[in-house]
Amino acid sequence: MSTIVLVGGSFLGAWAWERVTPLLTAYGHQVHPLTLTGFGDRAHLGSPDTTLTTHARDITAAIEHAGLRDVVLVAHSYGGAPATIAAAAIPGRISRLVYLAALLPEPGKSLFDSTPAHVVDAIMETVRDGRIPVMSDEIIDAGFGDHGLTSEDRAWLRARGAGQPIGTYQDPAPADLGAVQALPRTYIACAGDLGAPPSMPGMEVITLDAGHWPMITEPELLARVLDEAARS
């Protein structure tokens, strides 16, 4: 069986995988959901100095400290950016990268560099104390298509989510991410999401019949797909 490391997207910590982790464990995998600096029970550690680089180091440190190898690194949404940087830094420990409705960083660019200026301006208007607040229902509905979240899911996400440190969107990725190209990669697109998944040579693309947060809305379906990806 596989060693699976789970990285959530913006606002999320290890708690976001609570519905998926026991299912993957039941499949026989060793599962490590991570909480990045500034989220979950590490929310108090976040600051304006928390960057994309910080989060990439969180991931490499967790993997190296635990002595993990042959890791299936699963990254959701924003988590795709620091996970890619981490995988490029320790490719010998990674057996497969699995992107879940994820952002892929561009070498030498920040996430804001790849975002339309009017969207960046709108986000910056919401920033308080160096953080982007957890999304309102209006933003969720407008920005994520058929996301599948029930009112209870939204309340759960909002109650436990933590604001995103703004530096994570402003910090440029390393100029060289080439080591990732040699790793097996799977992209799991969510059918409810707006837009098309990225197209990259050598990357398998699977479409999941779910919205943007399948670890919350479709845990059994997601666990089955992750199990299949881990075994491939």
Rank of each mutant, 00 (worst) to 15 (best):
E152T: 10
E106F: 12
Y99P: 05
A101D: 14
A189V: 03
L52I: 03
V71H: 11
A189G: 14
G178Y: 13
R160N: 12
P82E: 06
H76M: 09
P105D: 04
A83G: 04
G130P: 03
H55Q: 14
G80W: 04
D58I: 08
E64K: 13
Y99F: 15
L103M: 14
A87S: 09
T53Q: 10
V72C: 10
L194S: 09
P172L: 06
A173T: 01
A117W: 08
A87M: 10
R96E: 03
R185P: 00
V119P: 01
L183K: 10
Q170H: 14
P172A: 10
A102M: 07
L103I: 07
G143D: 12
R158E: 02
G163S: 02
A182E: 14
I166W: 03
L103C: 09
P107Q: 11
A159C: 05
R160E: 01
R158A: 13
I90D: 04
K109G: 01
Y169C: 04
W156N: 03
S110L: 07
G148P: 02
E106M: 13
P107E: 09
Y99H: 11
P174N: 09
P197V: 04
A196C: 10
L177W: 07
A196R: 15
A56Y: 07
H65G: 09
P107N: 11
F144T: 04
A89P: 01
H65Q: 15
P133E: 02
G79T: 03
F144E: 02
G192S: 06
D113L: 07
D141P: 03
I132N: 02
E152L: 10
T84V: 09
V127T: 03
I85A: 12
A83E: 02
D193A: 14
L111H: 01
A122S: 15
G143Y: 11
G161K: 06
S114A: 15
R154V: 09
E64G: 03
A122D: 09
I63C: 08
I85T: 09
R57I: 07
G163A: 03
T150M: 11
E125P: 02
T84P: 10
D171G: 01
I63F: 13
P165G: 01
S110T: 01
A173V: 01
D171E: 11
K109E: 04
L183Q: 04
A191R: 15
G67A: 06
A122R: 13
D141R: 11
I140H: 06
P172N: 06
H65V: 08
L149A: 03
A117M: 08
L157M: 15
Y78P: 00
E106V: 14
R96D: 02
I59S: 05
A173Q: 04
R93D: 00
R57T: 12
F112N: 00
H147T: 00
R154G: 01
Y99R: 12
S110R: 05
H76E: 06
R93L: 10
R128D: 10
V98E: 10
G92N: 13
G92Q: 14
Q164H: 15
Y99C: 12
A182K: 14
P197Y: 09
L157R: 10
P82D: 05
A61K: 14
G80R: 06
L177Q: 05
A117D: 11
L68P: 02
S110N: 05
R154C: 02
Y78M: 13
I90W: 12
I123E: 13
T168N: 04
L183Y: 08
I63H: 11
L97K: 08
T84S: 15
I123S: 06
D171A: 08
G80H: 05
A87L: 08
P116D: 08
